[in-house]
Design a protein around this nucleic acid. Structure first.
Length: 137
DNA sequence: GCCAACGTTGGC
DNA sequence: GCCAACGTTGGC
């Protein structure tokens, strides 16, 4: 099972807004990076991912699930990029901060730590399990 | 096709 | 608010 991590600035799109969408979910649009695009294209309905607040908060705050696989992003005028739809599944009882992740043995290979600029990232099974435990799930 | 210049992201 | 890291653009 593949896992993912989605980054968002809370001032642009926050976890609370995501939760408020309920099962309808939202388009994860605006990706304009080819590596992130590859990740979006690899996603399958039902796969889960972390929702990470960048800049402000700097913490993994919840879990989302893919509800629609890759399709064209109509906001991209070049037609090169696409998006998926995701919905909020669970909120972490205790957000896992970037500091916590950096300190935790086993998470030093996370892309979040090494390439903080990639907005959609894969997460390994091991990393998934560790972060879930740290967040109280 | 290379690479310098520039813009953007995001941690600090 | 600064700056490092990264991606993109455009001149050659």
């Amino acid at each position: 099972m593949a896992y993912w991590l989605y980054k968002s600035e809370p001032s642009v799109w926050s976890w609370n807004q995501q939760v408020a969408q309920g099962d309808k979910g939202t388009h994860w649009n605006g990706v304009r990076n080819h590596v992130a695009k590859q990740n979006l294209m690899a996603m399958k309905t039902g796969q889960q991912g972390f929702f990470y607040h960048s800049n402000e908060g700097k913490a993994v705050v919840g879990i989302v699930e893919v509800i629609r696989e890759y399709y064209p992003d109509h906001t991209d005028e070049t037609g090169k990029f696409g998006m998926v739809d995701i919905k909020a599944v669970k909120t972490f009882p205790k957000p896992v901060t970037l500091d916590d992740i950096k300190k935790e043995p086993g998470l030093e290979k996370m892309i979040l730590v090494n390439n903080s600029r990639l907005s959609v990232q894969p997460v390994t099974d091991e990393e998934w399990a560790i972060v879930c435990r740290m967040g109280g799930l």
